[in-house]
Simulated scan of single mutants.
Amino acid sequence: MSNATPSVLDEFCSGELGFMITSVRTGIHEALDRELAPLQITVQQYVVLNCIVKGWGRTLSDLCRVLAYDSGAMTRLLDRIVAKGFIRRVENEADRRSSLLELTEQGQAAFPQARRVTEVAFRRLLGGFSEADASMLHALLSRILVNARSG
């Protein structure tokens, strides 16, 4: 029996990578939720608003595809955002079976504030990172994504 310490790569391959990424994601969401709470926006709601603003999704189907949600969960999330007055559903002239999502005036006013507090949270999360560290992190995470998609 070997007393050799497993390599970091071996540890990652035994499941540590998935656990670590899940833990980081959870930590990021918790930090963002704390920052967004005074604005009455959750991180999931902010992500939807951000997708709409960036043009990544204007329909329920778009958002389900981009965010990997099922339609029932996305419908419930959108209903909560509509109830808060941040978005509205408008008729989709191109496809009467769906509606388009757009920010309301209230959503347009809240989004820049939410964007600022998320930036503050991310800067805190990246505290102590140099530009080189951030570039390396980006490159390594990008490589994992490429490998996951080519799989």
Rank of each mutant, 00 (worst) to 15 (best):
L77D: 01
L63C: 09
L60G: 12
I28L: 04
L63N: 06
E16F: 03
H29S: 08
L17I: 14
G85D: 10
L17A: 12
R88A: 04
V47C: 02
Q40F: 10
R65A: 04
Q40W: 06
M74N: 08
L100A: 01
D70T: 04
Y69C: 09
S99P: 08
E30H: 13
G15A: 12
T75F: 08
R89H: 09
S99F: 15
I21M: 11
C64D: 04
S99E: 15
A73K: 00
S99Y: 15
G85H: 07
D33M: 06
N50S: 15
E35D: 06
G18T: 10
L49W: 05
R89K: 14
R96F: 11
F19K: 12
L63T: 08
A73S: 06
R89I: 06
L60R: 07
L63W: 02
G57C: 13
R76D: 07
K54W: 01
A68E: 03
S99K: 11
R58W: 02
V53K: 14
A73H: 00
Y46E: 04
G72R: 03
V47Y: 07
P38Y: 01
Y69E: 04
T75K: 02
V47W: 04
E16M: 08
H29C: 04
T22L: 03
L63Y: 03
G85P: 02
R76L: 06
L67G: 02
S71F: 00
T26Y: 13
R88D: 00
N50C: 08
R58N: 12
Q40E: 15
A83D: 15
K84N: 13
E16W: 03
L77F: 03
E93G: 01
L39Y: 06
R89L: 11
V48Y: 03
S99R: 09
D79E: 08
A37T: 13
A37K: 14
V43D: 03
H29K: 11
G55S: 10
N50L: 12
W56R: 13
E91H: 02
D95W: 10
K54G: 08
I87W: 11
V82C: 10
G18F: 03
I52D: 14
R65P: 00
V43E: 07
A73T: 01
N92K: 05
R97D: 10
I21R: 00
S98G: 11
V53E: 15
G72M: 02
Q40N: 15
K84Q: 15
M20F: 12
I81E: 02
S98K: 05
G18H: 03
I87N: 06
M20Y: 12
V47E: 14
A73P: 00
M74A: 13
T59C: 14
A83Y: 14
L39E: 06
W56K: 14
G72T: 08
C64I: 01
G15D: 07
A37N: 07
Q45S: 11
S61W: 01
V90D: 00
K84R: 15
E35I: 02
Y69M: 07
I21H: 01
V48C: 10
L78R: 05
R88Q: 05
G57E: 09
A83R: 12
L78W: 08
G57A: 14
G72N: 01
A31I: 03
G15L: 13
Q44G: 06
S61K: 12
A37Y: 01
L32S: 07
